[in-house]
Design a protein around this nucleic acid. Structure first.
Lengths: 204, 204
DNA sequence: TGTACATCAGTGAACGCGCGTTCACTGATGTAC
DNA sequence: TGTACATCAGTGAACGCGCGTTCACTGATGTAC
């Protein structure tokens, strides 16, 4: 095995382990020492692959985004009413973060980034990119369903993501009272309330 | 001035200062040393008034809850459509946490409480109490407006709070793209989608 | 194919720092007579 | 009213700990001839 391959392997293992430890302990409580140990290397190996804790987190975030991409692709091709698709989207969100731990880690990172300009800008850029991407998907779906949103698609997807995140976070402290069904119903209500049928006469 | 009065004064000053420092720095980055210094006392004074950082936070949280009570009381007495009231509620939420810092502090505390059972239960209890209280208000308002929610009121208020929190958090990292209007529109859409007119024949 | 040197991923120890919490103490306030 | 003692809010220093980051080093891999 070549040196580059070994390094890539270490990097991958660190990414996967970091994901697990972050979910287990949270952004602040997860230590680079703990991550390295769990990955079978030393802290130095982390710094050989990532510039800082923040950079490691960003890499984990990117991996997660990439991992979820096929799901969005599949969702885009499913047919059904806009509400059906909204419900499916909510169920996916719960399935991808069943106990709200990822949402919590993400918000912890946002909080840590308040005093770290480059980190904050990196997080903001990723959020914007994700919203822009989801926005185009939603646009396409809306057209197919014969409905429209009286707001820019990016705003809609941003608000959707934010609301779902809030619901997932609520599950973190009181899972018993925030069932997956409640998340689905709440999100479906939002979409029902937002959407309106395309008026025939309209050009747009 | 009696000794008890002095102590109460110190406690109040610590609470107020803690609120400011928590908002300024976040839950993790805010230090008891920093709070004490800003309040003009030493760390020991904090421990003379509060058992731990977690207890200090809970006291700040309670003070905030108490402070917001009159606002809810006023809101309850305003007349208008359910959507008008929803919009006002969203505006109040933004006014009470313009940049999402409080929402962030709260979620940071939730994250810190994951490994601290008593703290977690205390936070959960307060969230439940708040939702129960808001739930009865909403129930009353809904009846006056001639509408009903096809879900238990506590679930509705929990979902509302969670969604608003998510929207406020989004403002923390990208204030420019999450205007107060967007928060209002998103929340109004949720309420529109959730509510239905009371059917005349129904007993309930 | 073999040799001599260069590279560099990962090691292991140290650094600098600051956190939350504890505790012996102090001196102003409170209490009992 | 005055005195002697008790209380205790707040002080200041220390404790124990673990964090993120740095860095001189190592030894296996890569390269040049």
């Amino acid at each position: 095995m070549t040196r580059d391959e070994r390094k890539a392997r270490t990097r991958e293992r660190l990414l996967e382990t970091a994901r697990e430890v972050l979910l287990e302990r949270g952004y602040n409580a997860a230590t680079l020492d703990g991550i390295a140990l769990a990955a079978g290397v030393t802290k130095g190996a982390v710094y050989s692959n990532f510039a800082s804790k923040a950079e490691l987190f960003l890499a984990v975030l990117d991996a997660r985004t990439e991992w979820r991409a096929p799901q969005f692709e599949r969702a885009r091709q499913v047919s059904g009413t806009i509400e059906d698709l909204a419900r499916q989207h909510a169920r996916n969100a719960v399935a991808d973060d069943p106990d709200g731990r990822w949402a919590s880690v993400l918000v912890e990172a946002w909080a840590a980034a308040v005093d770290d300009e480059p980190f904050r800008l990196a997080l903001r850029a990723r959020t914007r990119a994700a919203n822009a991407s989801v926005g185009t998907h939603v646009q396409e779906i809306a057209e197919r369903c014969g409905v429209e949103f009286p707001h820019p698609m990016e705003s809609v997807s941003q608000a959707s993501g934010a609301m779902l995140r809030g619901l997932l976070l609520q599950r973190l402290i009181d899972p018993d009272r925030v069932s997956a069904e409640l998340v689905e119903e709440a999100f479906a209500a939002f979409v029902r309330g937002m959407v309106r049928p395309v008026s025939e006469g309209e050009t747009r």
